[in-house]
């Protein structure tokens, strides 16, 4: 399902947070949105997912989502957002329960997504006994279960340590290679952006405007940490953002 962000502007009271954003989100591509903190990248994601309404402009669906998609716009949150009183199995089941699926059908989906995220052995564990990386895997399994048309990922790896982040990036690449999905991936981590993004959108400091769009043609499976071409793009991105990030850091938070 192709999406188009059309002349989107947003204000909180008198403060403009996003200004005139125009962006195409083509099917089967991962779009990474990077920018200094407070540039409104997470807000942009909430508009795409329909959790908030922009002041002006709109997000357009250019076609119908696939018929088998239970929840076309599906979020993966930075803080995992798992229900602590439900087991891994129960957390995945939660998002299926309102769709009138039969018990065997639900069991089949849960088993399948837990296997794909290597969680089959942890189905009965409570979130409190899982590590951060495992928790995020549960959140990814939960998202897989509803067969999203577009994944909306809000800094999904930012709460994890560097090693876990590497592992999960590999997992995400693996999932994409197996079945390419459309994603808007918000991050402040440039290394993640160049590893996962087919297209990288650089936002400026508040009010967030699109400063630059960089397409990376290298296939995801060929990308790795420390790849020279990717490092070069990362440098370029950092060069673009450096002054803005510094200025953003010195701003008073209102």
């Amino acid at each position: 399902m192709d999406l188009k962000i059309d002349a989107l502007t947003h204000r909180y009271g008198p403060t403009e947070v996003l200004a005139d954003i125009n962006l195409d989100i083509p099917t089967g591509r991962i779009i990474c949105v990077v920018g200094p903190s407070g540039c409104g990248k997470s807000t942009l994601l909430r508009f795409v997912g329909g959790l908030e309404r922009p002041s002006e402009g709109q997000v357009l669906q250019l076609s119908d989502p696939p018929a088998d998609s239970l929840n076309p716009f599906t979020f993966v949150f930075q803080d995992f957002a798992l229900l602590p009183w439900r087991t891994v199995d129960g957390n995945v089941r939660l998002v299926l329960e309102d769709h009138g699926l039969s018990k065997p059908e639900m069991d089949r989906i849960v088993t399948d997504v837990l296997a794909r995220t290597k969680l089959a052995d942890f189905a009965d564990a409570l979130p409190k006994s899982l590590s951060g990386g495992m928790k995020q895997r549960v959140a990814i399994a939960r998202a897989l279960a509803v067969r999203p048309a577009v994944w909306l990922m809000d800094e999904p790896l930012s709460a994890l340590d560097a090693q876990t982040r590497e592992l999960l990036m590999d997992d995400l690449v693996g999932l994409w290679l197996r079945q390419p999905f459309t994603a808007v991936y918000v991050t402040h981590n440039l290394a993640e952006a160049v590893r996962l993004g087919h297209r990288i959108v650089v936002l400026s400091r508040r009010p967030g405007k699109i400063r630059k769009i960089i397409d990376i043609d290298m296939p995801l499976e060929e990308r790795s940490a420390g790849n020279a071409a990717l490092t070069k793009i990362e440098q370029e991105l950092w060069h673009l953002m450096r002054d803005e990030a510094q200025a953003a850091d010195q701003e008073l938070i209102t």
Binding site: G49, T74, F75, L94, D98
Partner: peptide, 8 residues
Amino acid sequence: KMGQSFGL
């Protein structure tokens, strides 16, 4: 918010 985003 998570619940809403999954259409519960």
